[in-house]
Design a protein around this nucleic acid. Structure first.
Length: 642
RNA sequence: GCCGACGUAGCUCAGCCGGCAGAGCAAUCGCCUUGUAAGCGAUAGGUCAUGGGUUCGAAUCCCAUCGUCGGCUCCA
């Protein structure tokens, strides 16, 4: 009988008869956590535990508590769900159903739409399949046979996929009479799918292309234990509580009105205050880093948008208007005016780099279905800048921007992910330009040893970009910072500088934002802090609460003092019990509550109660002012960072 | 834009197999003068998203439009 050599990661190795399963080999080699293995890797390939090994292999266990392990579970859960759905709705055609970040989904082509009300029934059918403890079986067959098989089963989407697969042999997985084209691996038995929940339904285009038919997607999640599932569902519940749309209303920060129009944010006093705080600080930070503040007009002649390429490539996102037979486009980006400023005079190489900064309000016509609170709107303000420099300065400028952006995000305490997006199909400029620009961005990331994800074809139409993404409370990622390299607009607008050689040269331009859109950033920020902003950001930093109305006079005096010291203070002199006022201030998440009663009036000080419930006891007014001013000073680090 | 769900007072929601539009919180007014997360009482507040239809009669059934939510596509 043929023998094969199997080795473990720890160097343990032994000969076994050919055909021994991956699971058995693990066990016989003394792998300690055999019970927690849900699949295996043989020579790097993910395989089922019962896969017979045919050649010398190094075997590794894929355990429950690993990312890959839970993916195996969820992928199997998606198969169980697909089987359940096809049993309940025989007309449903299967497509694809992968594991995703927090669960899994499966897309079906089904004549009658599935609604959330149908989910309990599907869950019950899944439960049935799980309780029957059906073995999950893998089978390998010729591609042509598979095509025949899925044609017979009337699964056109599977046939379509098979026709595009290159390999001669494919694998199918199934339980009972149910079957799916699948690479695997899977759990060995449906009984192992213990803790799952279907979480939602949605429409999704076949292969993610809007020209394709709309499929019905069912989302679900699965865990190895009921406890983990419960914890996850609680986490979702918590996340919903910090939804910025809910907090925005409760904290009276902003609203969006049907009357005014969808995607148009209306800032209430506290929301406007918040923006004012961030923006004034940010403007100062830019000035200290060698940026110049500029302002462009809200609309520019359509001719200019034609020249820049926006009309051709971005028209469907733009608003246009006509006055006195002249067509204007409302700006969706701020770059045009900045180029006009550059062109307003002759530039020398000694002037470069030039960094123009603008809190620029832009309008973009977003499709109605994509609007979302503050994070996806039609009018927003960008902390935008355009840097114009020599090709030699490019790398240094990109580095400076990355540092600036990461410093900002660190100040707010954000985790982030970085993506590099390369040339899209619809673009302007030569391939050579694109390559140079892309290389410049890659080099900057590599110099800084920043890991990033490559998004091929996702760049802007005028250049490649680096994006920094922040997560909201529900783990949805939102693009905030973006650094875009542009060799083509300087060309189109004939931007030049006089070099040391006395000749005209073409500068390079960088478009960049740090926080991105103030709207989106604010939305993510609200969720990040769950509405409890740190003192330096809080729209209201302190509120004065009187115990009875005989304390009003002193409270008024205290209010004046704090206001004069620049503290954002409010007063609550309502004829209510102290507990009531504290509760209200607490719900408004105000960092400090200043209780004013007999003791304070007599001593002439203030008794701050912190938002976390801690009583700071009676202190001098000046001491409290210093306390708040100290907390305000956290921005100093950024202002001085250059 | 596409698929699905939803739209009742400022907010959260009940009413919806057709028959007088409701509750709690918030608001206003009064009483209480109050010490660290909700005192008591009264009053006011709605073209039931909008428009059309079915019906003796529509918040309730049907259609359209607008908007919101969950996704898809797109994106700061």
């Amino acid at each position: 009988m043929d023998e094969i050599r199997i080795s473990l990661e720890n160097g343990e190795s032994q000969s076994f008869p050919k055909g021994i399963t991956a699971g058995e080999a693990l066990e016989r080699l003394g792998f300690e956590m055999v019970g927690s293995a849900v699949a295996a890797k043989a020579n790097g390939e993910m395989v089922d535990l019962n896969r017979p090994l045919k050649e010398d292999s190094s075997v590794e266990a894929v355990i429950r508590n690993s990312k890959e392990g839970i993916e195996v579970l969820r992928h199997t859960a998606s198969h169980v769900m697909a089987q359940a759905v096809q049993r309940l709705y025989p007309a449903a055609r299967i497509t694809i159903g992968p594991a995703i970040e927090n669960g899994f989904y499966y897309d079906f082509d089904i004549p009658d739409p599935i609604s959330v009300d149908d989910l309990p029934q599907i869950e019950a059918k899944m439960q049935e399949i799980i309780q029957q403890a059906v073995p999950v079986e893998r089978q390998e067959l010729d591609r042509q046979d598979a095509i025949r098989l899925f044609s017979e089963r009337n699964e056109p989407y599977k046939v379509e996929m098979l026709e595009e697969i290159d390999e001669p042999r494919v694998s199918v997985y199934g339980q009972e009479d149910w079957l799916d084209l699948c690479r695997g691996p899977h759990l060995l038995n449906t009984a192992e799918v213990k803790s799952f929940k279907l979480t939602g339904v949605a429409g999704a285009y076949w292969r993610g292309d809007e020209r394709n038919p709309m499929l019905q997607r069912i989302y679900g999640t699965a865990f190895f234990s009921k406890k983990d599932l419960k914890r996850y569902l609680q986490l979702l519940e918590e996340a919903r509580k910090r939804d910025h749309r809910k907090l925005g209303r409760e904290l009276d920060l902003f609203s969006v009105s049907d009357e005014a129009g969808p995607g148009l944010v209306i800032y209430h006093p506290k929301g406007a205050r918040l923006r004012h705080i961030i923006e004034t600080f940010e403007k100062e930070a830019h000035l200290r880093r060698g940026y110049q503040m500029v302002m462009g007009p809200q609309l520019l002649k359509t001719e200019m948008w034609k020249k820049s390429g926006h009309f051709e490539n971005y028209r469907e996102n733009m608003y246009f208007t006509e006055v006195e037979d002249q067509s204007y486009g409302i700006k969706p980006m701020n770059c045009l005016a900045h180029m006009l400023i550059y062109k307003s005079t002759i530039r020398s190489y000694r002037d470069l780099p030039i960094r123009y900064f603008e809190m620029g309000m832009v309008h973009r016509h977003e499709k109605s279905g994509v609007l979302h609170g503050l994070t996806r709107v039609r009018q927003f303000t960008q902390d935008d800048a355009h840097l114009i420099c020599t090709p030699e300065q490019l790398n240094g400028e990109i580095n400076g921007i990355i540092d600036f952006a990461l410093d900002m995000l660190e100040l707010f305490g954000f985790e982030y992910e970085i993506e590099l997006s390369t040339q899209p199909e619809r673009r302007i400029g030569t391939d050579e330009d694109w390559e140079r620009a892309t290389n410049a961005l890659v080099k900057a990331l590599e110099d800084k040893q920043i890991s990033y994800e490559l998004c091929a074809g996702e760049g802007a139409f005028y250049g490649p970009k680096i994006d920094i993404l922040l997560k909201d409370a529900l783990s949805r990622r939102w693009q905030c910072s973006t650094i875009q390299c542009d060799f083509t607009l300087p060309e189109r607008f004939d931007l030049t500088y006089i070099g040391a050689d006395g000749e005209k040269h073409r500068p390079v331009m960088l478009h960049r934002t740090l926080l991105g859109s103030m709207e989106r950033f604010l939305g993510v920020l609200i969720e990040h802090y769950a509405g409890a902003f740190p003192t330096w950001l809080a729209p209201v930093q302190a509120i004065i609460l009187t115990v009875t109305d005989r304390h009003q006079q002193y409270a008024e005096e205290l209010y004046r003092q704090l206001l004069n010291a620049g503290i954002r203070v409010e007063k609550d002199f309502k004829n209510e019990k102290l507990g009531y006022k504290i509760r209200e201030a607490q719900l408004q998440k105000i960092p400090y509550m200043l209780v004013v009663g007999d003791r304070e009036v007599e001593a002439g000080g203030a008794s701050p109660r912190r938002r976390d419930g801690k009583d700071l006891k009676l202190m001098e007014v000046q001491e409290f002012i210093r306390l708040v001013q100290g907390e305000n000073a956290v921005t100093e680090s950024i202002l001085k960072a250059n």
